[in-house]
Design a binder for these strands. Structure first.
Lengths: 144, 144
DNA sequence: TATTGTTATACTCTATAACTATA
DNA sequence: TATAGTTATAGAGTATAACAATA
């Protein structure tokens, strides 16, 4: 067991290790669904914002439009998401969930809740609850 | 501005966004040094554990030995780290900082402290201080 | 001119298999 | 047999440049 030195006071390092561990539990939880964290995020955002454009969803998730193309194509190919031209703006493609997509996502949300519950058990419910907001705030940090 | 739905209660998602933002500030801070987060972590661990083997350092950082080879080679090539055979075990390579490595790392620690200070300012010092331990605990979570 | 979506492409990170030399 | 380090390689994820269609 090596000493950590100042490394256990470096938030970026700790966040990287934390994200890796949490994603590992996510993968275990979602193994039966073959859905990645990115795909779950897209489905969730489309559900919350039906009819929003690819550019809007990609921007909200900080995914480059070029990289978003393949992601959407996969979800459309699996019959979970529908792409339709926006009336009045022939550049944009509006995204909505199909019935199959909405049904699957309902199961995914349940799995995600169980996943979050496991994390809350690990940290203690109070610590878990106190963690969400400041971590979300970190996401709004802008590099100097 | 799209609605987040349950996404703002998904710790894995929030951690990913947080890590991205914090690393962005790290890159801005360390731009003049051309040192990546991984390289900083290796240097810090070697400083805290001089003479430890490649396998020990790689394992402590959860880096696969195969991927650690290039990392060490870069640091040795820049004259920051020394690799020496371990007396009594001709398989292992012991890592230590060179004088140049120790000197550079001292400057890197100062830059990292400034980087952490900026994050503490962003969150408020109390929130920042309360964050380190639970995030470190998350890193010890094991996937189901 | 600017925006939306797209293709092509390159670069980094990470993962696995297979090898060597040592133990 | 198992361990330390290495090579080669494949797969993600992410970044930029350039383009067509549209605004």
């Amino acid at each position: 067991m090596l000493r950590q030195g100042p490394l256990d006071r470096r938030l970026g390092y700790l966040l990287r290790r934390a994200q890796l561990a949490v994603f590992q539990d996510f993968f275990a939880t979602f193994a039966g669904f073959a859905v990645t964290p990115a795909q779950y995020a897209v489905l969730t955002l489309v559900e919350a914002n039906p009819g929003s454009s690819q550019a809007q969803v990609a921007d909200a998730l900080a995914i480059k439009p070029a990289n978003f193309v393949g992601l959407v194509r996969t979800l459309v190919g699996r019959g979970l998401v529908r792409r339709a031209p926006v009336p009045g703006n022939r550049r944009s493609m509006a995204l909505t969930l199909t019935d199959a997509g909405a049904e699957l996502l309902s199961a995914l949300h349940a799995a995600a809740d169980a996943h979050e519950g496991r994390i809350a058990d690990h940290l203690g419910p109070d610590v878990y609850a106190a963690l969400l907001e400041p971590v979300a705030r970190l996401g709004r940090l802008r590099g100097a």
